[in-house]
């Protein structure tokens, strides 16, 4: 299975990555190689195998339902490019 440049452009857009015209060729080749590997894996019989959700054979530890975080808004907002009235400001979402 090969991936053409327009599909690369679509995936790049979904991931908000900028891929230039000149890079697109190489990226599409590399993804096509990965897909070839997946094709090869697809030929294996995995009928009786439980899908792997995580490479480590351990299970999730749980946290007690307690509020442990304090309000650090003023400190954290110094990291943001823009804030006002306690809100983080971002380029307008709706036109």
């Amino acid at each position: 299975m090969a991936l053409d440049k327009s599909e690369v452009a679509k995936i790049a857009h979904l991931a908000r990555l900028h891929i230039s015209e000149s890079e697109a060729e190489e990226v599409s080749n590399r993804i096509t190689d990965i897909l070839a590997l997946i094709d090869q894996m697809q030929s294996l019989d995995t009928e009786a195998i439980e899908p792997l959700a995580h490479p480590l054979e351990v299970i999730q530890r749980l946290r007690v339902d307690e509020v442990t975080e304090e309000n650090q808004r003023e400190r954290l907002q110094t990291l943001a490019p823009n804030s006002k009235d306690g809100l983080y400001l971002v380029p307008k979402v709706l036109e």
Binding site: K84, Y88, L94
Partner: peptide
């Protein structure tokens, strides 16, 4: 939540 009230052409975000 996004607050679409106008902040000088920006949107306000409350997380």
């Amino acid at each position: 939540k996004s607050l679409h009230k106008d902040y000088h052409g920006m949107s306000g975000i409350d997380l």
